[in-house]
């Protein structure tokens, strides 16, 4: 594997829910070490792209090579059936809505994210690292997540995804529903994550949060990514898509 090894190579991906087709023949390549931002309006397929990569859409077709292995293909039913296998291969999806376990404590939550054998063995050290990134969680370790505020939940959700070393981090709208100051703290935390072995894609509506902080910025519109040349990093260009 070379340094320019593609972590993710998506070719001709279409996906949707029931009769609704959300993604249209989408192509996307992510290389190791990249931190890519995807911007676009609500309902244009950012979340569906992430969910299709994790195998969570109702149906999908097209090729998804993850670390050189096919995880896509055509599928007309069984959303989520193979998600855990894709996750174990090194995908960390921090979804919109956080997908938290409301009755589990923060500590149990973080432990649940340590799904690989090595991560489970070293879960106490890893928990310390996550608490280093999100210090407010330390005082809440024994509190059920269902009693936390929106910002604290986001920290738990992101922290859970960091408990196992992933090859690809997909972060869906880290600023959604949060106060501007906390949004910025979330993005700052994401920027501190070490990507020497992997890559990260952040979907975001708020372009200003990502400007100048990511390797590449892509636009998503109507279920398609702007292909070929990447967007120049600038507000006006992205909003014209």
């Amino acid at each position: 594997m070379s340094a320019q090894h593609d972590i993710l190579e998506v070719r001709g991906l279409s996906a949707g829910y029931g009769p609704l087709r959300v993604l249209h023949d989408l192509d996307l390549t992510i290389q190791a070490g990249e931190r890519v931002g995807i911007v676009g309006l609500n309902g244009h397929g950012k979340s569906t792209l992430f969910r299709a990569i994790a195998g969570l859409t109702d149906w999908q077709s097209g090729s998804i090579l993850f670390d050189g292995r096919e995880i896509g293909g055509s599928r007309s039913q069984g959303p989520g059936r193979y998600t855990h296998r894709i996750v174990r291969r090194g995908l960390a999806l921090m979804p919109q809505g956080d997908a938290i376990f409301h009755g589990l404590t923060v500590a149990e939550h973080l432990d649940s994210g340590a799904h690989s054998r090595e991560a489970w063995r070293s879960r106490r050290d890893r928990r310390e690292q996550v608490l280093g990134i999100f210090p407010p969680l330390r005082a809440l370790l024994d509190v059920p997540v269902g009693r936390l505020s929106g910002g604290e939940r986001r920290m738990v959700s992101l922290g859970r995804g960091l408990m196992t070393d992933a090859r690809l981090y997909l972060v869906d709208e880290p600023s959604l529903g949060l106060a501007p100051k906390i949004s910025k703290a979330m993005i700052d935390a994401l920027m501190r994550i070490d990507l020497s072995r992997g890559a990260m894609v952040i979907a975001e509506q708020n372009l200003s949060l990502l400007e100048g902080r990511v390797t590449r910025l892509l636009g998503m519109h109507g279920g398609k990514l702007k292909r070929g040349t990447d967007l120049p990093i600038g507000r006006s260009a992205a909003l014209e898509i």
């Binding site: 969570l56 998600t83 855990h84 996750v87 994210g113």
Partner: peptide, 9 residues
């Protein structure tokens, strides 16, 4: 949360 469970492997 079954979906959350799938997302942690």
């Amino acid at each position: 949360n079954p979906e959350g469970a799938a997302l942690v492997g």
